[in-house]
Amino acid sequence: MLLETRGLTASYGQFRALFGVDVTIAAGECVAIIGANGAGKSTLMRAITGILRNEPGMVLHKGEPIGALSPAAIMQRGIAMVPEGRRLFPSLSVEENLLIGGQMRKVAGPWSLEAVYDLFPILKERRRSPGTALSGGQQQMVAIGRALMSNPELLLCDEISLGLAPVVIRDIYAALPKIRAGGAAMVVVEQDIGKALSVADRVYCMMEGRVTLAAPAAAVTRAAIHAAYFGEAA
């Protein structure tokens, strides 16, 4: 198992956001995390990547406890995140933003500057532009490319379609199989259930900080998703 959470809890001060979350991610697979706003999806990503610290044994990477490690140490282990809101460096160009990803974890792998440009050709055209001068969709491509430049074993994508036009979402989702072909496992956090299921091997649904459904994406029914998503009877 590439990554596993065991009874994962997380809090923001006095507010408990996750309650005993158990998820698993195998090498090379794509897992979708779905749920409404406030379900705990982004909090789960922050806990996995060390932004929210927890007990060491609550997050395991290749069987080793990493729950108390810093975000930098977790990235060095090959876990990278595309954060919600993209969070590009506004003073840097597109290419400089991408190169920072490579500096964070210098390991050999399929992803280089040219490989990212092959994946998203528009970025090569705009490589000298400030990252924040791009459209929302192009900024999302930069954020994905920056994470890929670290050649991760596990790529966490937090709300990658949020606020984007349908045509841009289509282009980004078309790139995900190419990313998987490079060998990385993926977690896709998404509110668009159809998009999530279209790329995932397995799906987890969260509600109010708990997992309410865990199933193979190809087998899960709309009724089961509805019940897990809204806490209603199927």
Rank of each mutant, 00 (worst) to 15 (best):
L60R: 02
L60H: 04
H61L: 15
E64M: 03
I66M: 09
A68E: 05
A68P: 00
L69M: 14
S70A: 06
P71R: 02
P71Y: 01
A72F: 10
A73C: 00
I74V: 11
I74E: 04
I74Q: 06
I74P: 00
M75R: 14
Q76A: 10
Q76R: 10
R77I: 07
R77C: 07
I79C: 08
A80Q: 00
A80Y: 02
M81W: 08
M81Y: 05
M81P: 08
M81N: 08
V82C: 03
P83L: 00
G85N: 00
R86N: 06
R86G: 00
R87N: 10
L92A: 01
L92F: 04
S93K: 03
E95R: 14
E96W: 02
I100G: 05
G101T: 01
G102W: 02
G102R: 04
G102C: 02
R105V: 01
K106R: 15
V107N: 05
V107H: 04
V107R: 12
A108Y: 08
A108R: 15
A108P: 12
P110C: 05
W111H: 06
W111M: 07
W111I: 06
W111F: 09
W111Y: 10
L113W: 10
E114V: 04
Y117C: 04
P121V: 06
P121T: 05
P121F: 07
I122C: 09
I122K: 15
L123V: 01
K124R: 15
K124P: 13
E125T: 14
R126E: 09
R128K: 15
R128T: 14
S129P: 03
S129K: 15
P130V: 01
A133L: 09
A133E: 14
A133S: 15
A133M: 11
L134Q: 08
S135F: 09
S135D: 08
G136M: 05
G136E: 10
G136T: 13
G137K: 12
G137R: 12
Q139N: 07
Q139L: 03
V142G: 09
V142N: 11
A143G: 07
I144H: 01
I144A: 03
G145L: 02
R146N: 11
L148Q: 13
L148S: 09
S150F: 10
N151M: 07
P152F: 10
E153V: 10
L154H: 15
L156T: 06
L156Y: 12
C157V: 05
E159P: 08
S161T: 04
G163S: 06
V167L: 14
V168S: 12
V168I: 15
V168A: 11
I169F: 03
D171W: 03
I172H: 06
Y173M: 06
Y173H: 11
A175Q: 14
A175I: 04
L176D: 10
K178F: 08
K178L: 13
K178T: 14
I179W: 13
I179G: 11
R180M: 06
R180A: 03
R180C: 04
R180K: 13
R180T: 06
A181Y: 12
A181W: 13
G182R: 11
G183F: 05
G183R: 14
A184I: 03
A184W: 12
